[in-house]
C-alpha cells in the first residue's frame, strides 16, 4: 500500500486564523473596541480625566453640559465627566473581581462533580437548589448586610452566590464531554484522573464558561452599581457609577446629567462585554467535529 492521502493545505498559524475570523465580525470589533477603551480609562484615569474627580468648585455647581464640562457638574461643582472616568477604575475592577473567583471555584467544583458524580454530585445538586431558590440580588444583599458594606465584602458576597452558576454550567459540559470516546481513550491510555479532567475534558468544556463569564462581568457591573446605589458597595465619595447615580437622584428633574451620564457608561460597558461574549461564543466553537 503506497497511499499517501492528501492532507488539508497547511494553515500558516493558528492564532492568525482566529484573529482573521474575529476581525470579520463587527460585533467582535465593537465589543473589543469598547472594552479596550474602557480598560484604557480604567488604567490611566489621571491622564485622561480633565479635572480632579474629588475637587469641589463652588463657582460651578450643577452646571449643564458645556464645553468646559461636557457631562456637566454635580451639586458640589465636581466635573461629572472626570468622575465617570475615574469610576471606570472601580467598576472594571468590580466586573473582574466579583466574577473571576466565582468562575475559578465554579470551574473546579463543576469539573470534579461532573467527572466523579455519585454522592458529591447529589450534595452539589441540593446546594444548587438551595442557592437558586433565592433571588440573586436578595441573597447578595443579605450576605453584604451581614458582612458590612464595602467593595471587598461585596466581592465575597457575589462570589459566594455566583460560583454555583459556573459550577452548574461546567458540570453539565464535563458530563457531556466525559461521554465522548476521547475521554474513554484517555482512560485506556492509563492517564490519571487529574490529567483527564484538566488537560482533556476542561479545554473542551470551557468555551461556554468563558462566554458566560463575559456576560457575567456585565451583570457584575450592574449588580455592583445597584449595591453602590443602595449604599452597600463602593462608598462615597469614591467615584462609582451606582454611587454617582444615587448622588444625582435628588436632582433628577433639575440636573439630569448627574445620573444620566454614569448610566450611559454602564450601558455602553455592559454592551461591550455582551458583544464580546456573544462573538466569542461563535469563534470558540470547535470546527468540524
Amino acid at each position: 500500500m503506497t497511499t499517501l492521502d492528501r492532507i488539508a493545505p497547511a494553515r500558516p498559524n493558528r492564532l492568525s486564523g482566529f484573529a482573521a475570523r474575529a476581525l470579520k465580525r463587527p460585533a467582535f470589533l465593537a465589543g473589543f473596541a469598547i472594552l479596550g477603551a474602557s480598560l484604557l480609562l480604567a488604567l490611566f484615569p489621571a491622564a485622561i480625566a480633565p479635572y480632579d474627580p474629588l475637587a469641589f468648585d463652588m463657582t460651578a455647581i450643577q452646571q449643564g453640559p458645556s464645553l468646559a464640562h461636557p457631562f456637566g457638574t454635580d451639586g458640589f461643582g465636581r466635573d461629572v465627566l472626570s468622575r465617570v472616568i475615574w469610576a471606570y477604575r472601580v467598576d472594571m475592577q468590580m466586573a473582574f473581581f466579583a466574577t473571576v473567583f466565582a468562575m475559578l471555584i465554579g470551574l473546579t467544583t463543576g469539573a470534579l462533580v461532573g467527572f466523579y458524580g455519585g454522592i458529591a454530585d447529589a450534595i452539589f445538586g441540593r446546594v444548587v437548589d438551595a442557592v437558586i431558590t433565592f433571588p440573586f440580588l436578595v441573597l447578595v444583599i443579605a450576605i453584604v448586610a451581614v458582612l458590612g458594606p464595602g467593595l471587598v465584602n461585596m466581592y465575597v458576597a457575589i462570589t459566594a452566590v455566583n460560583w454555583v452558576y459556573y459550577a452548574r454550567l461546567t458540570r453539565a459540559e464535563i458530563m457531556a464531554q466525559k461521554a465522548q470516546d476521547y475521554a474513554a481513550a484517555a482512560r485506556v491510555l492509563g492517564y490519571s484522573d487529574a490529567r483527564i479532567i484538566f488537560r482533556h475534558l476542561l479545554p473542551n468544556a470551557i468555551s461556554p464558561v468563558i462566554v458566560y463569564w463575559m456576560t457575567d462581568m456585565a451583570l457584575a457591573i450592574l449588580l455592583g452599581s445597584s449595591l453602590g446605589y443602595l449604599g452597600l458597595g463602593a462608598q462615597p465619595p469614591a467615584a462609582e457609577w451606582g454611587v454617582l447615580i444615587a448622588e444625582g437622584r435628588n436632582f433628577i428633574m433639575t440636573a439630569w446629567w448627574i445620573s444620566l451620564m454614569p448610566g450611559i457608561a454602564i450601558v455602553v460597558t455592559g454592551l461591550g462585554f455582551s458583544l464580546l461574549g456573544d462573538s466569542l461564543a461563535d469563534l470558540l466553537r470547535p470546527k468540524g467535529r
Binding site: A185, L189, G190, R289
Partner: peptide
C-alpha cells in the same frame, strides 16, 4: 500495575470523529 495493563492492552474505538481530542 493497572496503568501498566492499560499500556499493554489498547482499545481502538469505532468512531474516529469522537475518539480524538478536538483541542489537541
Amino acid at each position: 500495575d493497572r496503568r501498566a495493563y492499560n499500556r499493554r492492552v489498547q482499545l481502538i474505538f469505532q468512531d474516529p470523529y469522537s475518539s480524538l481530542n478536538p483541542r489537541m
